[in-house]
């Protein structure tokens, strides 16, 4: 009846026109829209279920607009996100600088959010190596430094797209399990009761 249950919030971040929407479109609807760039307005939300092992996980994907106009709004989209896919365009170095900005933002405000750096438009640099403006190894170094994951994808051919989202889901599934078991160990009924009473007395 009511809205679908969402397990993990995933947010897409990155400079305008790096292909965040195309990436989501390829993953969710298995298609690629050719032709002129169409801006996302505000943000678009889409839910997608994926099976990991014997479990089904529903990812709630927030595809945000890259325009500076919405920057002030961006916190409401990434708050509480379990994963952020920070996109940059392999053929545009400035988009990588923008990706660094988002990484910093996430590290400051959302420390529990796992970061996945995603170089898009891989098909363009495969055809013509000189088109590449962002070096693979430089990004790899950066990724290791910040403890993130690194993917290079093409939404046009579909290359590596499923792998990226599968990894996101798997990591979530593993960490959710860890979190759950950690909580089980930590729960102490007496303690909870006490703290409840404690707060009661003071009101």
């Amino acid at each position: 009846m009511s809205a679908m249950r969402i397990d993990a919030k995933v947010v897409m971040l990155g400079k305008e026109s790096v292909g965040k929407t195309s990436l989501v479109e390829r993953y969710v609807h298995h298609r690629f829209l050719v032709g002129p760039y169409q801006n996302t307005i505000g943000a678009a939300f889409v839910a997608k279920s994926i099976s990991v092992g014997d479990k089904v996980i529903t990812l709630g994907i927030w595809d945000t607009a890259g325009s500076e106009r919405y920057e002030a709004m961006s916190r409401i989209y990434y708050r509480g996100a379990r994963a952020a896919i920070v996109c940059y365009d392999l053929t545009d170095n400035s988009s990588f600088q923008r990706a660094r900005f988002w990484v910093k933002e996430l590290q400051t405000f959302e420390e529990h959010c796992k970061i996945y750096l995603c170089g898009t438009k891989n098909d363009l640099v495969e055809g013509d190596r000189s088109a590449r403006q962002v070096d693979y190894h430089d990004v790899q170094d950066f990724v290791e430094e910040i403890g993130a994951q690194h993917f290079e994808t093409s939404s046009k051919t579909g290359n590596n797209v499923d792998a990226l989202f599968t990894k996101v889901a798997e990591d979530f599934s593993n960490s959710a399990f860890e979190l759950l078991s950690a909580e089980e160990k930590g729960v102490n009924l007496d303690q909870k009761k006490n703290s409840y009473l404690y707060s009661c007395c003071h009101h």
């Binding site: 989501v24 307005i41 678009a44």
Partner: peptide, 18 residues
């Protein structure tokens, strides 16, 4: 006009300040 000008609303649910 806003709703008609982006195909992104067809792909998912849009949420935008206006």
């Amino acid at each position: 006009n806003l709703a008609a000008s982006s195909s992104s609303f067809r792909q998912g649910e849009g949420w935008t300040p206006v």
